[in-house]
């Protein structure tokens, strides 16, 4: 996994609204997901309403940070100019212990070693002074 130096050119999330709050917690080194205070269901990506009970009341609940790889790809040929020198990139879908899934990348796993079911845990990478992305490393089960 390349830790290249063109991060400033890479696309960054908008830091407004709920997305800004999600990434704000990441910047403080915490992975948090919305949890409905009506029925207790976790959700990701952030949304205004709980799709289970339609409550609009929720809180940012801290994740254990642990999960497993649900699926993955390896981008060998980038289709976005900012990633051309960063390949191979291996986007993974991580299924968290809370039940939600999120897209990320692993910091310490060669693409050839990727496997569905692999236990991982969150780490944080400040890609700019404003933006910290949640990434993952291999974990002991």
């Amino acid at each position: 996994m390349s830790q290249d130096t063109v991060a400033c050119d890479k696309p960054l999330p908008a830091l407004d609204g709920l997305s800004g709050q999600f990434y704000g917690w990441c910047r403080q080194g915490e992975l948090r997901f919305q949890r409905c205070t009506g029925c207790g269901a976790f959700r990701h990506v952030p949304r205004e309403m709980c799709p289970h009970c339609n409550s609009m009341e929720w809180e940012w609940a801290r994740s254990s940070g642990r999960g497993t790889v649900y699926t993955w790809t390896v981008v060998e040929r980038a289709l976005h100019p900012a990633f051309v020198n960063a390949t191979p990139i291996a986007p993974v879908v991580v299924e968290m212990e809370e039940g939600v899934r999120l897209l990320s990348t692993l910091v310490d796993c060669a693409p050839a070693d990727l496997a569905i079911g692999m236990p991982v845990e969150v780490v944080f990478e400040a890609v700019t002074p404003e933006v910290t992305l949640p990434r993952f490393r291999r974990a002991a089960r």
Binding site: L12, V45, T71, T73, V75
Partner: peptide, 26 residues
């Protein structure tokens, strides 16, 4: 719209073959 922008693109998942590759792999 903003979901892919905010949660996929920053990790290098930027285009249709990559989205669907996740489904194919699973």
């Amino acid at each position: 719209g903003g979901i892919a922008w905010d949660y996929y693109l920053p990790h290098g998942l930027t285009a249709p073959p990559q989205w669907y590759a996740l489904m194919a792999r699973r």
